[in-house]
Amino acid sequence: MRLFEYFLGNRPRTADAAKDRLKLIVVRDRAATGEGPDFLPMLQKDLIEVVRRYVDIDDDKVQVDVDRKDNLSMLEVNIELPGRFGPNS
């Protein structure tokens, strides 16, 4: 039977199910525990990339933080640009 499936190419790829289930449960675990590998470093990396498309900045000029209070969280993003931009410059 397995041999059959091999030739027909319709064997279920269980690894995909594993990955999908893990993605969901990990997010739930993280929310439940309040711990978790923060997405902040990744967000920071992405932000740096986006800003770099327009302005040349160093890696450490983008700071990302989450401020947790009681039952709300605030995302704090600080991007320092080189020199001065804007109408007065």
Binding site: R11, P12, R13, T14, A15, D16, A18, K19, L22, K23, V26, P37, F39, P41, M42
Partner: peptide, 19 residues
């Protein structure tokens, strides 16, 4: 087993754990 699709591949695990 990874090639057969029955084991999570390295990239799958990296995508979830992100280290």
């Amino acid at each position: 087993r990874v090639e057969q699709g029955d084991m999570l591949k390295t990239d799958d695990v990296l995508e979830i754990l992100a280290i």
